[in-house]
Amino acid sequence: MSAPALSIAALRKSFGGTPVLTGLDLEVANGSLTAVLGPSGCGKTTLLRLIAGFERADAGTIRVGERVVCDERTYVAPEQRGVGFVAQEGALFPHLDVAANVAFGLARSQRGSGRVQELLELVGLAGLAKRHPHELSGGQQQRVALARALAPSPRLVLLDEPFDALDAGLRTQVRAEVRAVLRESGATALLVTHDQEEALSLADVVAVMRDGTIVQAADPQTLYRDPVDAELAGFLGEAVLLAGELHAGHADTALGRLPTRGANGHGATRGSVMLRPEQILCREPLAGAPRGRVLATQFYGHDATARISLQDPACPEITARAAGHRLPAVGDEVSLVVEGTALAYPSPR
């Protein structure tokens, strides 16, 4: 097993007394695409800039491959790290054409070797070598920026919210293209984004950042299914939280007895369980099943959500997801059926 492409331990950084990174750990496996997901201003960009070497960390260690590029004694200059960088708006050099931009990081001897052409073909822009950056669309600029970063075959490519500057229609397409290019080139990439849909749909591993540390890093499905706490559950998508009594393997809640996973305690404890709205199905009123009344609905076409008030005063409202064609009407009385297991969060003592 070779060393991971990137490993970071206990990284700290503050700006003018304001802590931004507070002991962050992260590992990026060779050949993977990892996304760092976090709200705006959580320090994602700072993390990237520290890895690239544009700034110096206050404490902690950064390794690129097996090489320490930053710790208490070491600070390797950006140009010696072998880390590519794709900036938010591409940041192509405006005085150079596309080919010269891509060739920028290549040694003089390599510039004529066909490597530039190879990369332009990889990003699907072989015909635009002589164009200048202002003659390209936003998506094309991002692809050139990616080709430029990949050209010197870096150990790792960093992408700083690369799709943020694109308009919504273009974003999905460029995302898919970038992912395909990264796959094909076999590069290891670390991307930061504040868009959870982007992170979940694009990356092999998603690391969620909060208050200057990584709260959880996992593959998208695990992360969505088993977030470490209720706040993270809500950040990754809509979550229904129900207070209840937790037992080994099940919990008693406003929706009745639900099978649970995670945090199986000994004996009964107070706590809450998390369900995704798509686990809650609305049915015709049935005897024995918990009931509720539909307060409002939101129609999205392929599916829809319904806000439902339960008769239980301890748990006033929940959200359920339904297929678009099975949406109950406002005011309907429905029975609620839960599919799968709920995730248990014991209350902190």
Partner: peptide, 16 residues
Amino acid sequence: APPVHEEIARSLGCGP
């Protein structure tokens, strides 16, 4: 002239 261009150049192997 945005400094990001200099940073990109650094990440592509240029000294300051």
